[in-house]
Each structure stands twice: as structure tokens, then as C-alpha cells.
Design a protein around this nucleic acid. Structure first.
Lengths: 100, 100
DNA sequence: TGATAATATCGGTTATTCCCGATATACCAA
DNA sequence: TTGGTATATCGGGAATAACCGATATTATCA
């Protein structure tokens, strides 16, 4: 049951906020030093700073969002960039109309 | 934060199933003896039988769904009928596109 | 090679959720 | 009134999630 995993991922205040930030990274994060723009996503450190939780917690939250398919990740050097997966939200929106 | 309450309500296997049943009651439940059709919803007892959990658990689950706005309830005599709130799902579908 | 930085994973405490049985409340019928 | 049926609420044990600090992993750079 995939949608259960998605809703569990969404049922946490911080994880919802992270997704909202990733929806508009330009407005939510300072320019990243090691890469130009937010095309590949936002690195864990920036998200952690903004969330105000420990590194381990934020890292775990991001992997929960990824397992649910709500974000994708790209490793570049020592950084991992997380990006909102727009397609997943389109699909979820449809599931809510047709399945539930 | 209303959407958090909604996603928490949706992050349980049985509650998701109940919503799916209420989406198409004719297909999911036997004819109710005390009322004609499913216009006002499905009574707790029918939902409980189908869920296979105790009465108290199902009653609590239904009130969680109701507090989240996902179902409405109507009391008629000694029965309470629960019905899917279509509008809430339309709104949720939009929230997923625009907010998160 | 070794030092440092970014991220992931592991082990554990505390808070929350799941789900139950027991009991309370509301309604109806005799 | 008394008894029976439908639902709601309360108290609690067990399972899961939240969140942390410590440590492991991976990459960079001198």
C-alpha cells in the first residue's frame, strides 16, 4: 500500500515544512556556495539549518520523504541535494480524487 | 496547521480503507435495514463489521476522520451515519498542488 | 597519508498512536 | 419503568514515531 507510506511521510510538521521550502527554494534558502542555483536541489546542511533540528534527524526525515517518492536526491561530491518530485504530487493529487 | 491533522488522519491502513468504502457504499456494504439507500451515509455498526476491529476503535477512527473534516455524520435515532465529505477531498487535492 | 567537512546510520529515551475491554450515554420498545 | 441496542468515551498495554548524541561512511584537499 504505497499511499499509506506517502501519508505517513506527510504527517509530520517539520517534513511538511521541508516540502514547502523545497517547492520554492529561491525564496526559502540563501544562495548555495558550492553550486549555482537550485536546479539539482538543496543540500542537507541548508535544510538542517532552517529546520533547527539535529543533522541526524533531518537526514532521516529526508530519507523518509525520499522512500515515499516525494523528493529525489543527487550526490555531488560531499553534498547530497534534495529536490521536490513534482510528478509525485501530481499523482497524489489524482489518487485523492480517484482512490480515496 | 489543518493539513497536518488531515495527513495524520490518513496515515492509518484501516482509516484509508474506511474512506475507500465510503466512496462507494453501494459496492461496499449490504443494504441497511433501518434506512433506504446510503444517502445519509453508513452506520457505525456496518463499518465496524467490515473493518473487523472493535466497536470502540472504529468509533474513535470515525471521529478522527470527522475532526479532520474528511467525513460528516448524521444522527438518526440510535444510529450515527458517516458519509464521505467530497468537498474536503477536492480541497485537499488542491492544497497538494499549491501549498506543499 | 592524515585532517577536515558533509552526510548517513546506529542505539536509545521519550512522546504519540494503535487498539483493546470496560463503562457511560442516548435512544427506542414493551 | 425496565431492558435491549447503537454509539461514544475512558484507561491502559503494546507498538511505532520523534528526536537526540555518538559513530561510521564518503569525499576533498594538503
Amino acid at each position: 500500500m504505497k499511499q499509506l507510506e506517502i501519508f505517513k511521510a506527510l504527517s509530520n510538521k517539520t517534513r511538511l515544512e521541508i516540502l514547502q521550502w523545497l517547492k520554492d527554494p529561491e525564496a526559502s534558502f540563501p544562495e548555495q556556495a558550492h553550486v549555482s542555483g537550485f536546479e539539482i536541489g538543496v543540500c542537507v546542511g541548508e535544510i538542517q539549518r532552517k529546520a533547527g533540528l539535529t543533522q541526524s534527524t533531518v537526514s532521516e526525515y529526508l530519507s523518509i520523504l525520499q522512500r515515499a517518492g516525494l523528493v529525489t536526491s543527487t550526490r555531488v561530491g560531499q553534498w547530497t541535494y534534495y529536490k521536490r518530485n513534482d510528478i509525485a504530487f501530481d499523482e497524489l493529487s489524482k489518487i485523492i480524487q480517484s482512490d480515496i
